[in-house]
Design a protein around this nucleic acid. Sequence first.
DNA 1: TTTTTTAATGAGACATTGTATCATTTCGTT
DNA 2: AACGAAATGATACAATGTCTCATTAAAAAA
Lengths: 141, 141
Amino acid sequence: MSEELSPRAQRLRDTGYKLTNARLTVLNVLESHGGHMTSTQVLDEVDKIDSEIGRASVFRALDLFTRLSIIRPTYIDSSTTPTYVMLPGGHHHHIICTNCNRVIEFEDCHLGQLETELERQLNVRLTGHLLEFYGLCDRCS
Amino acid sequence: MSEELSPRAQRLRDTGYKLTNARLTVLNVLESHGGHMTSTQVLDEVDKIDSEIGRASVFRALDLFTRLSIIRPTYIDSSTTPTYVMLPGGHHHHIICTNCNRVIEFEDCHLGQLETELERQLNVRLTGHLLEFYGLCDRCS
DNA sequence: TTTTTTAATGAGACATTGTATCATTTCGTT
DNA sequence: AACGAAATGATACAATGTCTCATTAAAAAA
């Protein structure tokens, strides 16, 4: 088949993982929802598209994508069920209203400098980050 | 009883919540472990101290503390079971090694400026934040 | 101090979410 | 086309979190 692959799918293959139907479907679902989904939502959407895909494979894909820093689990409106956010370009930032749980995205995080500083000081190699601010949104404050 | 209260316990009472045995025990456990614990660990430790305290109350306390930004659930070594980190002074930052899951703490995050900028631009009131970097630690890179 | 009010509790059945196992299938390569 | 390793799907299971409701205990009022 000669479909074109999304950059993330490319990355999957380049890292040595097989491009299976299950993985591509999960990735597709995440991408088409902007990557703010719980596992249950992903399971539902995947099921709509291809009900042959098993529950376990969905969880396995979510785990794999997490390890590859394609997505990141975080806790938004439940302190127990994670929401998977995409890490476009390896990073993500938002504000969570602690009253109504609304999520507000914003652009610049100015963390490039801190990142290189930490890499030098601690001898680590950083590939991404997640920055969450908590507080009250304009409606709730 | 005239025990002195921790600042966080004070905060609980000041916000109008009762200082119950269950809540104080959970808080105590979190504080004495530096606040990097899963719910199961908290349940175990609480049970050691006072086995009368019910499972539900522990979860209720964790939820409450999360709402008050005393702790924050985050992903560390499982993409599903959250680890609760304390937000001392309303914030927390660390590096998670995506290979061995080691957590490296660091100090300055230099986010004060960004915080005030966002408050002004978006008309929000921010009370805390969580900053996570992902990458390979010195041993794994 | 005693009483009152009401939030919070604990027990435990239940629901939800995630994982392990393993025979079978599929991908990518030869 | 055939091969081998990786991944899958089915399903039983395990772990984690939630609900209900009668009872208790914390804080306020008397």
